[in-house]
């Protein structure tokens, strides 16, 4: 058989499929090709997860971010946040809307911008959580993402301090017509939820 299959690798493949589907949907809607980079998944305890996320927030986003997030409960419990640097979002939105606002790009985000990001967030988060839930056959319920702009974001906002929680971090890069947008997806879920997912996957593919 092939080498040892670790948990990160399994999740990475599942999220890759999710992100690939999201890119397919988005590409169809905006009628542009999207080049994706392979996201690597890190499974971290809360402390390490916060440190990793803070690094992203300060280095890539310089603190100002646009976040779409959803919470889910029932069989699986946790929150998912899709985080993009705020300064790149005007460009990202312009590319999606076939607009070029040039100087006016320094304007604050409008309700229309928020709605656009809400749709993008919905597409990506649906694909990721949907793929996960499909694969393990555990239904997940959640609402539409909430979109916020945060000027000095800290990891505490996305990662709860509760015991038995884990942080899944992955970085995704969209490249649309030469413009790179580096985002992060942070999943904060209970250890039990992750165990349920991985155990189900093990059962499905073991013994073959």
């Amino acid at each position: 058989m092939t080498g040892k299959v670790n948990r990160e690798d399994i999740l990475k493949e599942l999220f890759n499929i999710g992100v690939g589907q999201a890119a397919g949907t988005l590409s169809e809607i905006i009628d542009k090709k999207i080049i994706l980079d392979v996201p690597d998944v890190k499974i971290l305890n809360v402390e390490l997860g916060k440190a990793e996320l803070d690094k992203f927030l300060s280095q890539v986003a310089e603190g100002a971010v646009m976040v779409s997030s959803i919470s889910f409960d029932r069989q699986l419990e946790g929150t998912v946040s899709l985080i993009f640097p705020a300064d790149k979002m005007h460009q990202f939105i312009d590319l999606c809307l076939h607009e070029d606002r040039g100087e006016e790009a320094s304007m604050e985000f409008t309700d229309i911008d928020f709605d656009t990001v809400k749709e993008i967030g919905n597409i990506i988060l649906n694909a990721i959580i949907g793929e996960l839930s499909n694969t393990v056959n555990i239904p997940v319920e959640y609402t539409l993402p909430e979109v916020n702009v945060l000027n000095s974001a800290k990891a505490d906002l996305f990662v709860s301090d509760e015991a038995y929680h884990l942080v899944l971090m992955m970085y995704i890069t969209f490249n649309i017509e030469g413009t790179h947008i580096d985002g992060a997806i942070v999943i904060n879920m209970t250890l039990k939820s992750l165990d349920d997912i991985l155990n189900t996957i093990d059962k499905m593919y073991d013994g073959r």
Binding site: T25, E28, C96, I112, D115, T116, E119, I129, E141, Y142
Partner: peptide
């Protein structure tokens, strides 16, 4: 009558995942 709409509907029916289409992109 587009793929992305049909895919979204399939997901809504199968998994109950809510869907949002923005006026700006559509």
């Amino acid at each position: 009558d587009q793929n992305f709409f049909h895919n979204a509907v399939d997901r809504v029916i199968a998994g109950g995942t809510p869907v949002f289409f923005s006026a700006a992109m559509h």
